[in-house]
């Protein structure tokens, strides 16, 4: 394997990871504030459709991306109204929205299906793209990669370093305690849900405008939203770990495509579904790693603890019961 080939693979991984990273970061923001937005898959698809349709209509892909973000925020608004203000189950509404938005995307997008349209093109940052090995991957190929890295930096800085980020984390850990200190809990949760939805909407836009350009039934990014949801758990609700999770799953996709070329005997169907068993296995590993029985075993056999990935912390308090449960 030449250095050039390896460098190209790394570039492909960062490119494929960009929308996954945005969607997973969006869900991270939402869940750190205590709102589980289960509608990720539908959000990404619908936003992809909306972004492509608007970009085609206006001839400007960046307006399309904005429309995608708006669509994502609108879906998050529906979820927030039901979950926060009508007291419905977030999981149930999120799941119905997943199906609804997916079908709505296919229905509304029928007119622009299999049509040519603009895309975000490529972009090279002078100077930085000449850095050996990683330069081309990060700064030399597409604005998509820069966008995802910028989102990562922004989300990390917001959650870890700003006052509103601190309030958001506090609300996600204990809404009751936050309310007793005078925080307007539902307003904070509404805002974090909207911001998360907008980020996921951007992810949809990145798919239809760059990573898997165009629209169709199917589009090709089906299932990405679910993987983003799993990445959040895998990353322990921490932005940087979540970003690594997105890179990991993108690497699996890229490896699938690369192996498909290398081993033509195996069916492509197997490589397309590869991320999903890996998703289940990573969740299994992460959850077993967090169990007390494993901690006790690792105390006796230190090697075990070193072999498994380091525990990334638990779920925010407000949602710990909802998705982190086990018997």
């Amino acid at each position: 394997m030449t250095v050039d080939y390896a460098s190209a693979l790394v570039a492909a991984v960062f490119f494929a990871a960009a929308p996954l990273m945005l969607a997973a970061l969006g869900e991270t923001v939402s869940e750190r504030g205590g709102v589980i937005n289960l509608s990720m898959d539908g959000t990404v698809l619908f936003a992809a459709m909306a972004a492509f349709a608007v970009a085609r209509g206006c001839g400007n892909p960046w307006l399309g991306l904005l429309a995608g973000a708006g669509a994502g925020a609108a879906i998050a608004l529906i979820l927030a109204v039901f979950g926060l203000f009508l007291g419905a189950s977030e999981l149930a509404v999120g799941f119905v929205l997943t199906l609804f938005c997916r079908e709505l995307a296919y229905f509304m997008g029928h007119g622009v299906a299999r049509q040519p349209g603009p895309d975000l093109g490529s972009l090279s940052v002078p100077g930085l793209s000449d850095i050996p090995f990683l330069g081309q991957a990060l700064f030399g190929q597409s604005p998509v990669v820069l966008l995802s890295l910028a989102a990562l930096g922004l989300v990390w800085w917001f959650l870890a370093r700003t006052r509103p980020g601190l309030v958001l984390r506090a609300v996600g850990e204990s809404p009751r305690a936050a309310a007793s200190r005078g925080v307007a809990v539902r307003r904070v949760q509404l805002l974090c849900c909207l911001a998360g939805g907008a980020l996921a909407g951007c992810a949809g836009g990145l798919y239809s405008l760059s990573v898997k350009p165009g629209w169709g039934h199917p589009q090709g990014c089906e299932g990405a939203g679910w993987i983003a949801l799993a990445i959040v758990i895998f990353g322990g609700w921490k932005p940087v770990r979540v970003a690594f999770g997105a890179l990991f799953f993108a690497a699996i996709q890229v490896a699938g495509i690369a192996l498909q070329d290398a081993l033509p005997g195996l069916s492509g169907a197997l490589f397309q579904i590869a991320p999903f068993p890996v998703m289940i296995l990573t969740l299994l590993a992460v959850n077993l790693r967090r169990s007390t029985a494993f901690r006790e075993a690792a105390r006796r056999v230190p090697l075990l603890g070193r072999l498994m990935p380091r525990s990334a912390g638990g779920a925010p308090g407000a949602i710990a019961g909802a998705l982190d449960k086990g018997f």
């Binding site: 197997l270 289940i280 299994l284």
Partner: peptide
């Protein structure tokens, strides 16, 4: 996966849907 592996059935079920689809295609 839920009872012994603490993997929520939403994720295992969804993942297994894709796997079953892949198996049938294969």
């Amino acid at each position: 996966l839920r009872t012994h592996g603490r993997v929520h059935e939403i994720f295992s079920g969804l993942g297994l849907n894709f796997v079953a689809m892949g198996v049938s295609l294969w």
